[in-house]
Amino acid sequence: MAVTVLDSLNHALDHAMDTDSRVYLLGEDILDPYGGAFKVTRGLSTKFPERVLTTPISEAGIVGVANGMALRGLRPVAEIMFGDFVTLSADQLVNHAAKFRWMYNDNVRLPLVVRTPMGGRRGYGPTHSQSLEKLFLGVPGLKVVAPNALGNPGDLLLAAIAEEDPVLFVEHKLLYTRPLLEPGQGELADYEIQEFSEPYTSYVLRIPNYAPCLTIATYGYNFELARAAALDLMMEHEAFCELVLFSQLSPFGLQPLAASLRRTGNLLTVEEGTLSLGWGAEVAARCVEAVEGLRVRRVAARDLPVANAKSLEDAILPSVQDIVNAALELVGR
């Protein structure tokens, strides 16, 4: 059976706990046999009963306790059951985790990972479907990392656990059951893929021997939609795209995106968070400052809560067709 994103994350946690007794997991309903709402921690409480702590429904408490553990030498990995609930721990992330090292003049380190599933398309409605990572982008001292199905999500998680500073690790729900993508194989067979900036790898994908007219920048699950759109643009419109896939959302460097934009002159950002004042807005602004003559469009969720009914949810969240339409408008076709 193919290795899924879920397997990859679960194996990474297992490996981290096996090789480092400072690693603790804490979160709601993470004990076996249930193993967590999305099963990322399945099997771990059986194997490491002393270090897998099931908590009350207390998101501020979970992240606060994890902060104290991290300040005093452990490496806690906290799970927030749904990303929507991360707002309940916002004070701990913003006013505690992200600040302590700098505010205490680098006297301390805070090796914390907060993992949480974000995203919709499962019909969970307004408070269990959001992509709220945009609220935590640009917080000084807090890294935001999002795995995707390319590369190895477990390696990203291990890199986050190895950090000396706090990381918010955003897992899109629809990724969990996806098999890992292999460069040069299957859906990626036509692409030439370059990797950049370890440990949170960014990727540039291009079709060799065809001049690209557009760069699509995205992260997480929306890479799946962006690839489908790129295929459509190539087959139906003979428009070739470069895809730039981010793993580290905040803080972020302009390369390799800026180099791609110098080749294509057109940037399309794709995200599942709401459009206004979001990830794509900041990426676009930074790129426009750096790349002369750049043209930009953003595809994102409508500025509405995510509805429960499928017809409404589909209309609110970005679709492959939305990406194709925006791309065609951007390149003038």
Binding site: A60, G64, G68, A70, L71, R72, L74, Q92
Partner: peptide, 12 residues
């Protein structure tokens, strides 16, 4: 906010 942090410190 300091109370859960101290709670985590006690856990250690």
């Amino acid at each position: 906010g300091i109370v859960p942090v101290a709670t985590g410190m006690a856990l250690v």
